[in-house]
Design a protein around this nucleic acid. Structure first.
Length: 494
RNA sequence: GGGCCCGUAGCUCAGUCCGGUCAGAGCAGGCGGCUCUUAACCGCAAGAUCAGGGGUUCGAAUCCCCUCGGGCCCGCCA
């Protein structure tokens, strides 16, 4: 783009950059050594009396310039780095006429700069750095958003997440909190002897959940490959292999729409524990959320949902029985003995469109969503689902028609799903085939290699799945999954 | 896929109902002033494909249609 057609704000900033280069300095220098976090300098300066300076100590800081308040022969510049911010106090006395003027002529809000100087506390009490040297480290050719509001438009915040992050402290804090939560999952499981693994995204079969896969293509294999929709079957094969305690945190892909709680690519944590059952897993889950609630409260003390989490997630969590809860909330009786057709009729009464060939699993889900889920506000385990709801869970040891499964709910979020895992290959084969007959789009794909693996013997085991994005939503107070996913899908801009 | 809503300067927003000084403000940027400000302040000048296209009209940011992008709700989907 010729310069005279370049947007004038960018052209203006480019001129300032050219001024730097013309004076023999690098426009984009290579390093700025010895910078300390702004928080370090702020702590030193905060210990001074208002108006006092500590000329004996010299610090270097680096970061992005915020608002600049010029004041004739002195100026205040805000500098933001990953840990906080610090006010720079620049005066003609220290910088000299030429140096001071060069600073004003060359720097803009949004620039990446390095500064050196002495800790000082202004008369108004603001911890600051009295600047003896300030240097452009990278020019912001594009202006930052308005200093008070940042980016407000949801589309802009997603498409220009890099801008959203530096302009919005709340956004930055939320993603930092998510990272700490994931680290909390890793450390909690690691301390308990669980081995973290990566099993790969491209598989010959997409199974382990009811969802339509994305399909990609291998030139080498000359074949179509589905992207995984769950981690379950591969992790269970690791139990067969003797790894005994494994978990994976990684992306899974389900070919569906994006809304406030769904996104086609999301992060799943699954964990498998040999020689344990779902009752053992319940204790593991309680301890995990107790830990994560503490992480959230520490990371986001100003967010009510996070600050309250340690009190809310104090074990033991509430427990309800799936069938009891559904029957008592809906008035339905004999739920497990209802013929499928009657189940469909009842499910239709919730307002959900139930197709002629709807599975019992779908009907149960709709009824549960309608009658039970909204009532689960405190963290609550729902125990012992009907057999039809999952083909991968073991039959209940004493309750006919049920499987050993629980889910954890909190304020409309599903925060975990656990089973005593089915490890009988013959039974597994039957369940897969029963599913495949119902709805080819939404069924669990038959995975012959998985059934064969079970024939080598898988130890009795408990399994757990947690949608990391929804966990992060619940604990950071986010109302949209886009607020906890850095780069959600959006349509190509034309 | 269905319904409702939104898109105005780099950013944050008025203006749209009810067509006619409706191209407006603040921030950012330019010029000038100011050596303790912190959403600094004061003065001056500038900055717009009103998402895009078509239509109605003497006249459209405003009314109608189509397209693009986004948001919310529903559906699909854990």
């Amino acid at each position: 783009m010729p310069e005279d057609e370049e947007p004038r704000l960018i052209a203006e900033r480019r001129r300032k950059l050219e001024r730097v280069v013309a004076s023999g300095r690098l426009g984009y220098p290579y390093r700025f050594p010895d910078a300390v976090p702004t928080a370090t300098v702020a702590a030193v300066a905060r210990a001074l009396e208002p108006g006092a300076e500590d000329p004996a100590r010299t610090f270097a800081v680096a970061g992005r310039l915020g608002p600049v308040r010029q004041h004739g022969k002195s100026a205040f510049l805000d500098l933001h780095d990953r840990d906080g911010h610090l006010q720079l106090f620049a005066r003609v006395d220290e910088l000299g006429d030429a140096g001071y003027q060069a600073m004003l002529d060359e720097l803009d809000p949004g620039d990446i700069v390095g500064a050196v100087g002495h800790p000082v506390r202004t008369k108004r009490g603001e911890p600051s750095l009295r600047v003896t040297r300030i240097e452009l480290l990278a020019k912001a050719l594009r202006p930052p958003p308005e200093k008070w509001h940042g980016l407000q438009d949801e589309e802009a915040r997603i498409r220009r997440r890099h801008v959203d992050l530096f302009a919005s402290p709340a956004s930055r804090a939320r993603f930092r909190a998510r990272s700490h939560l994931v680290a909390g999952v890793r450390s909690y499981l690691g301390e308990r002897g669980f081995l973290e693994v990566e099993t790969g995204v491209l598989g010959p079969v997409a199974s382990g959940a009811a969802a339509r896969p994305f399909v990609t293509r291998s030139n080498y294999l000359d074949d179509e490959l589905p992207l995984r929709i769950a981690l379950e079957l591969q992790l269970k094969r690791l139990l067969v292999g003797g790894l005994e305690r494994v978990f994976e945190i990684g992306p899974v892909f389900r070919n569906e729409d994006l809304d406030s709680t769904h996104t086609p690519e999301f992060t799943m944590m699954e964990c498998y524990w040999a020689y344990a059952d779902y009752l053992d897993m319940r204790g593991l889950v309680e301890g995990l959320y107790e830990r994560l609630a503490g992480v959230a409260a520490q990371a986001l003390p100003d967010v009510p949902e996070a600050a309250a989490a340690p009190g809310v997630f104090r074990p033991p969590f509430d427990v309800v029985d799936y069938v009891d809860a559904l029957e008592s909330n809906s008035g339905i009786t004999g739920l497990l003995d209802l013929p499928l057709e009657e189940l469909r009729t009842l499910a239709r009464k919730t307002g959900a469109p139930i197709p002629e060939n709807a599975t019992a699993a779908k009907c149960f889900d709709k009824l549960f969503d309608k009658y039970v889920e909204p009532t689960l506000v405190r963290p609550t385990f729902v125990f012992d689902y009907p057999t039809a709801t999952s083909p991968l869970a073991k039959a209940h040891r004493s309750r006919p028609g049920r499987i050993e499964r629980f889910e954890l709910f909190y304020r409309g979020f599903e925060l975990g799903n656990a089973y005593s895992e089915l490890n009988d290959p013959e039974e597994q084969r039957k369940r897969f085939l029963a599913q495949a007959g119902d709805d080819p789009d939404a069924s669990y794909a038959f995975d012959a290699e998985f059934v064969e693996a079970l024939e080598y013997g898988m130890p009795p085991a408990a399994g757990l799945g947690i949608g990391i994005d929804r966990m992060a939503m619940a604990l950071t107070g986010a109302t949209s999954i886009k607020d906890v996913v850095l780069f959600p899908q959006s349509r190509r801009k034309r």
